[in-house]
């Protein structure tokens, strides 16, 4: 990697200030950024570590929602969300390997918005609120395509607020090499309806399958999806599967998620 300055602030305010510097980039768990730096594909002047900020860590229940600090590692979510939101805990506990889960953070994953990452589907299906150092963003407004989000330059995800559903499940079909989601479906049932968010499949990144949501809101059962289908036209096509295959998986996995919820 190239040389860079490194700071590790202990408060959000200090981090925001440091990120205002020219060429500064935030570093959370580093599970994407560090390999990118090692490949010399990124050349920041300064990295601002977010993992030393106590107020950005931890999982707590608050008025029917889970509030998870942006710098909370997946392993902590897997352990501490298990009682209130088991589907989310299971998702977190199945990301990468133990090393990834103990370094990678929920805020880092959502900020990166990898089209095959698991967390974006949970945030979108939960109708989560992305809390930043300067505002709150609804998940429906936050995800804006592959690796694209509503975050502004220097804006930090300080917490994620996920309403706890009545029922939920995440079913991930692994890409055989990376074990990212070749396709992953998160289904969450709330009092006011069902939300279905799909990762790994679309060229536009994580998305809601609204037809499925309507059908499942009327009848939360796998059979409710009969007759529905997604087109593979705008789905990711690569050496691990065609768009048509991913479109097919979307339906299979949605059914399985409903059955598992």
């Amino acid at each position: 990697m190239y040389n860079f300055e490194f700071v590790k602030p202990s408060s959000i305010a200090e981090a925001v200030k440091a990120l205002a510097e020219e060429g500064a980039q935030p570093l959370s768990g580093g599970q994407t950024l560090i390999p990118t730096l090692k490949q010399r594909l990124n050349q920041p002047d300064m990295l601002v570590s977010l993992t030393g900020i106590a107020e950005m860590k931890g999982v707590k229940a608050e008025g029917g929602a889970l509030v998870i600090g942006g710098a909370t590692p997946h392993a902590v979510v897997a352990a501490e969300a298990a009682a209130q939101y088991p589907a989310l805990a299971a998702l977190a506990g199945n990301i990468g390997d133990p090393a990834v889960r103990n370094r990678g953070t929920i805020g880092g994953s959502l900020a990166n918005n990898d089209p095959s990452a698991c967390y974006p589907s949970a945030a979108l299906a939960s109708g989560a609120t992305i809390v930043t150092d300067r505002r709150e963003i609804a998940a429906d407004d936050y995800f804006q395509g592959m690796f694209a989000t509503a975050l502004e330059e220097g804006e930090i995800i300080t917490a994620v607020r996920l309403p706890i559903p009545q029922k939920a499940a995440y079913v991930k079909f692994n890409q055989p090499a990376s074990r990212f989601a070749l396709t992953g479906v998160f289904v969450a049932k709330y009092a006011d309806g069902v939300r279905v968010a799909i990762t790994g499949a679309s060229n536009d990144g994580v998305f809601r399958w609204t037809e499925a949501e309507e059908a499942l809101s009327a009848n939360f059962a796998p059979e409710a999806l009969e007759g529905l289908s997604l087109s593979g036209d705008n789905m990711i096509s690569d050496l691990h599967g065609t768009g048509a295959y991913r479109a097919h998986l979307c339906k299979v996995l949605t059914k399985r998620a409903v059955a598992a919820a």
């Binding site: 079909f173 055989p176 070749l182 691990h240 599967g241 065609t242 295959y245 097919h248």
Partner: peptide, 11 residues
């Protein structure tokens, strides 16, 4: 014999 290949063979 990847999942995608099996699915393509079957469909």
């Amino acid at each position: 014999v990847s999942p995608a290949r099996v699915w393509s063979a079957l469909n």
